[in-house]
Write a protein that binds this DNA or RNA. Structure first.
Lengths: 201, 201
DNA sequence: GGCCTAACGCAACTGGAGTTGACTTTGGAC
DNA sequence: GTCCAAAGTCAACTCCAGTTGCGTTAGGCC
């Protein structure tokens, strides 16, 4: 991104990233403005506009940061409990007063802006891949068929949470999380989530 | 809403609603402005601002309209095929060049604005209730347990579609729709989607 | 059919997001 | 150490979404 990775540019980038996260946590997405981020970071607003372009650009950049930090993938020895734990983690993440607004802001930004959407897409690809580990282990234990699509299992498990939060705007309880995980387990065991076979030309 | 439901007020409301839908279909949510809706409808922009408040208000109102028109609930005689058809309908609806942008705009608006979120919530509650009919029929046929939560089955079936479209921004194929429906069927048959029992105090 | 007032129309105004062009600082190559 | 171009700063400007105050129109009620 930078042709001059050292010194000032890096400092400016870090300051802006940090300010973006802080502003998101405090005021949420609707309260995020380029001007406030500029003031908070001590960087001139023109600079922010030139390098990030817009509020969505700021978020896309912050997302790259978020993608890098790994996830605590559970390993309980039970496929069902692993999946329950993953879904519960997602649910409680959005319920958290600090992390919640930030995560929600990412989703909101991506719905409106192509750049943010691409960043979020990459983020989820990485997350699905990481979380699919619990499926791989279940396959090794012989709990699931070898051709089970790990990422698809994860999608099935977490989708109802996001659906309630961002589409239907229904409340999400821990019981909902549990039920979503159990449904994904049932589907995986029934063998309907097998990986798409590369079609024989 | 109106203290004077007759005549001009009603005409203004209809004109604005129609203009909103038309603008959404043409330019999508990001291209929707109060000003353009005002011009298109022939209603003064001040009036639109006073009665609807904002772009999100326009969408919330248009949603009330959308909620009223019923849905073609399939009745194939097979629970699996009914559910597949419902999910396919959702998927193809968003793929449609006219209806797609309008539906997507509703979701986008609701993510940002409380009023639109409440309208969309009510919309989905109605939809879930209507679609749960296929579950009721399956129960009558003895395919599913009597305590199966119909709305929850529908959520499980359609959630992955919305998840891909609005959260992860992955493409959605007909095969994905099929798989989501099949997963919901498997979960329902496994009995993990039973209605929440009212807790014995 | 005349009156009252809710609802609409109108034009001028406001504020802040985003832009522009000239100037200054600074990292890094030689 | 010198030089240069990339990156950042600054102030002034544009533009348009949203507001305001007031005049006008037209339902609905007696």
């Amino acid at each position: 991104m930078d042709r001059r990775p050292g010194g000032r540019s890096a400092r400016v980038r870090d300051a802006v990233r940090q300010a973006t996260i802080a502003e998101l946590a405090e005021h949420g997405y609707s309260g995020l403005t380029v001007e406030n981020v500029a003031i908070r970071s001590g960087v001139h607003k023109t600079t922010v506009y030139r390098r990030w372009g817009s509020v969505e650009g700021l978020i896309a950049d912050a997302l790259e940061l978020a993608r890098e930090e790994p996830w605590p993938i559970p390993d309980t020895g039970s496929f069902r409990d692993d999946l329950r734990e993953i879904v519960r983690l997602v649910q409680s993440g959005f319920a958290d007063p600090v992390a919640g607004p930030i995560s929600a802001a990412f989703v909101t930004a991506a719905v409106q802006n192509g750049d943010a959407a691409r960043s979020l897409h990459d983020f989820f690809v990485a997350r699905h891949e990481q979380a699919a580990e619990v499926v791989r282990r279940a396959v090794e234990r012989g709990e699931l068929a070898a051709d089970t699509d790990g990422a698809e299992v994860i999608r099935m498990a977490v989708a109802p949470i996001y659906y309630r939060l961002f589409i239907t705007h229904e409340p999400v309880t821990e019981r909902d999380a549990e039920r979503a995980a159990d449904a994904a387990v049932a589907a995986a065991r029934a063998g309907v989530l097998s990986a798409p076979t590369s079609d024989p030309r």
